[in-house]
Structure formats: C-alpha cells, structure tokens
Amino acid sequence: MNDMRLSERDVDMTDVKIAARGVQVFYGDNHAIKDVDVNIVDKTVTAFIGPSGCGKSTFLRCINRMNDTIPIARVEGEILIDAEDIYDRRVDPVQLRAKVGMVFQKPNPFPKSIYDNVAYGPKIHGLAKDKADLDAIVEDSLRKAALWDEVKDRLDAAGTGLSGGQQQRLCIARAVATSPEILLMDEPCSALDPIATDQVENLIHDLRRNFSVVIVTHSMSQASRVSQKTAYFHLGELVEYDDTAEIFTNPKDERTENYITGRIG
C-alpha cells in the first residue's frame, strides 16, 4: 500500500551492524548455506526473500546462534556483530541471544500471563532494579509492540488466550523487553490475517528507530513495504543484495528477476 514511497526511502545510517564472511551451514550432509557474504546495516530493515528451502531462515538462525540447538547443524565462516566474531569460543551464545532478539514464524507465547511473558527476559537477565522498574519495562515494551492499549486491563490473563495477531505482537514485545540491538524475524506474519499483518508491519517500521531488523518473508509485497535493504537467496546462495527499491525495480541477476516477477518460486 505504501509502495509509492519506495524511492523516498533511504538508509539513515550506513555503518555495518552485522557482517557475514564466507558462511557455510551444513545439516548433516546437507549443505544448506553456501559461502554467504553480506553486510547488514544498523537501524535498517533488511528483508531476506527467496523460494522455500533456499536457506534464508537457516542464515537468520545463524545470526543469534539458534542453530546451536540443533545437534546436526554445523556452521563455518565468520559472522561479526559490531566487528566481533559471534562464533568465537569466548562468546556465550546465551549472552548473544539477549542482544539479538528473535521472533518466530508461529506466535509462541509461553503458557504464562501476558505480564510474565514480557517480564521473562528482563527477569532472566536481571535488567530491572525493582518491581516498579520491571512494570515500566513491561509497559514500555508493550507500547513499542502497539499492544499496550489492548491488554493493559488484563495483564494477568493468559498470553495464550490472545488472538493470533495479538500473540505475535506479544512475542515481539517479549523480544523487545530485553532491549536487544538486533531483532530477527522469521516470517512473523505468515500465520496472521491481513489486518494483523498490517499492524505488525507498522510495528516493524517503528522498531527501526531503535533496532536493526532482519526479516525473512515469503511475501514480496511485504518485503517491498517494510524493508530498505533486500537480499535474495536461492538454493543456499546469496544471489543479490541491494537497496529494496533497486532489487524490485532493477534486479541485476536473472534469477532474482524471475523470482520477483513470479516466474519461479
């Protein structure tokens, strides 16, 4: 709906937040990611697009080392966040994930109250001085996720009792509450209806002010609506990475063009 503004968008800052160098991922014998190099810019929304099974979610999960939880997964190459290698042995993946938040494809609120869902991260990491401080963090996070007005009267209600769109925004609030620097979103709208999708997209737009957002999406219109940078993945390779406007109006690679014009994928 706001495709018209594509050309108006430019990247606010140009310093690199995440830099990937020669990243390879194997699931057992399956070579899922092949030699990916990419520079992801701070305070920007970067979209990963590509056909199913092209490795975009796998690559996303490398950025906060969620692949560590899969026993057969193996990552080679290096990924730098603020010029620090996150696969260095001195890096604690738990610490890293507090800094690099993640929102999943299906809303997965914990079977706890709305309040406890949001307070979960701050409690674990000891971010709140006292109860009042924690309340403030919860309120602030819910406001950032545009959910506060809908749930402020029932913070003790179960998070699982919310609607799908509300649950996904709750998960975003939960991720925001640990004040991460980067927010990874793995197809955050694929389980949502158009109205909830619109709410989440607006939210992503606002989140950009505070975070670098990396979003995996199957919807090319969504990529064009929310992102400033787009990366096209194909069969585990990064085919093309450029400004979103450039990718959608003037793709350099034939495979990218085929995909965005709907000939494959």
Partner: peptide
C-alpha cells in the same frame, strides 16, 4: 511440550536450565 516454546525461551537468551525451569516444566 512444543519445540516452539523452547525456541522462544532460548531466543530470548535464556539458558537451557532456565528454559526447563520456567517454561517447559510449567507447561
């Protein structure tokens, strides 16, 4: 207990033990 619960907790920077104590066992 769905894997999504564990992923959600681990993705927030919880350790495996915190995930079990606060998410998996209560669920």
């Amino acid at each position: 207990v769905p894997q999504a619960m564990r992923d959600g907790s681990l993705g927030l920077g919880a350790t495996q033990s915190e995930t079990i104590k606060q998410v998996v066992v209560p669920a």
